[in-house]
Computed example of a mutant assay.
Amino acid sequence: MDVPFAPWSPEFVADPYPAYAELRATGRAHWYAPTRQWLIPHHADVSALLRDRRLGRTYTHRFTHEEFGREAPPAAHEPFHTLNDHGLLDLEAADHTRIRRLVSKAFTPRTVENLAPTVERLAGELVGGLVARGGGDLLAEVAEPLPVAVIAEMLGIPEEDEERGRLRPWSADICGMFELNPSEETARRAVRASVEFSDYLRELIERRRKDPGDDLISGLIGVEELTEQEMISTCVLLLNAGHEATVNTTVNGWWTLLREGVRPEPGKLSTAVEELLRYDTPLQMFERWVLDDIEIGDQVIPRGSEVALLFGSANRDPARFGPTADALDLTRADNPHITFGAGIHYCLGAPLARLELTAVFGELLRQAPGLRPAAEPRWKPGYVIRGFHELLVEV
């Protein structure tokens, strides 16, 4: 049967949720030939598989490419894969445990709490600038600058470094490789960004060796268990993963609020943020390799396969969220969404993302209570990381 899944269709990207409902109604695992993946649409299955150690973000800790029935990446893509494969997100087993333990020290509750005044100040300044101008692009003027500035501050990237302005473009080019079946041009941009970003971080690390500060890079330099490549890959991942969810939840979330004509109650802002993270999930899909045969219902999925865990579908599953799963409920109390993942790869920066989202939504509600759209936004073509080109607003 035809699978109602069309990740390269603008219409599907704009509203994938009816297709997800059809997928959930017709099975627990669907083969999708264009990407050679099994689509998993149900909340219970997605949640369980995120925790299942028979699956992994990589397979190279156990198999060669040949043993796993896969082709090695093209040699020309090597700089991207070197950067990506040494990062926390794509590591498994002992290496993942080791690096997560080291990096998690930067994301303790106290560390995040100490960042709150900086986050709130930046959010207030960015929103204040938007209001003073009478409006503008909420994405470029508020949503993007906030998390990028916070991560740059954590890493210790000096404000005077011209490369600070290239962080977001580098990140966008690298993240293009996480879309389905990326083109060769996408790969070329990702490779170039990987080389440039790595070279800059290598130079910054050398500066910090001579003149350490109280930033994350300075802290990681003294950790003997961490190689320089692991340090570079970790810093890049913190930028990439540390702002995508915040940027797209801010913009997609505000478009939802504007479209629905509702606003969160100030006293229930954190609950509303959780619902916006669920309702229009910023990362629609997460992929896993099948390291040992698994069964989903009566379907055996063999080793060497890839599963596509449909976060956007799982977060709208009536089996978990009840008959109002497709409705926006800013007071939803029981909200076990999986936007930040689960298991050993649960998003390390989730507390920071929540802090940033609460701050920016709070400032917009306070300073721009009459916020309204100035134009219909256009979706970017990407499906996995799903967001708008811009969101023009008036205040």
Rank of each mutant, 00 (worst) to 15 (best):
D2W: 06
P4F: 13
A6M: 04
P18M: 12
A21L: 02
T26L: 04
R28K: 14
W31I: 01
Y32I: 00
P34A: 03
V46A: 09
V46R: 12
D52Q: 10
R54K: 12
R54H: 05
E71K: 05
A75P: 03
E78S: 05
H86P: 00
H86A: 14
D90A: 13
L102D: 12
S104N: 15
E125S: 05
V131F: 01
A132V: 06
A132C: 06
A140R: 11
L155M: 13
G156H: 10
D161S: 08
R164M: 09
W170P: 04
A172D: 15
C175D: 15
R188G: 11
V191L: 09
F197G: 03
K210P: 05
G213Y: 04
E228H: 04
S233A: 09
T250E: 10
V251I: 02
G253I: 02
W255E: 15
L257K: 09
V262T: 08
P264Q: 11
E265Y: 03
R288P: 07
D292I: 01
D292A: 08
L309K: 05
P318A: 13
A327H: 11
L330G: 04
A333T: 13
H337T: 02
T339P: 00
L348C: 03
L352A: 10
F361L: 09
A368T: 07
P377S: 14
R378W: 07
R378D: 15
W379A: 11
L391K: 04
L391E: 13
L391S: 02
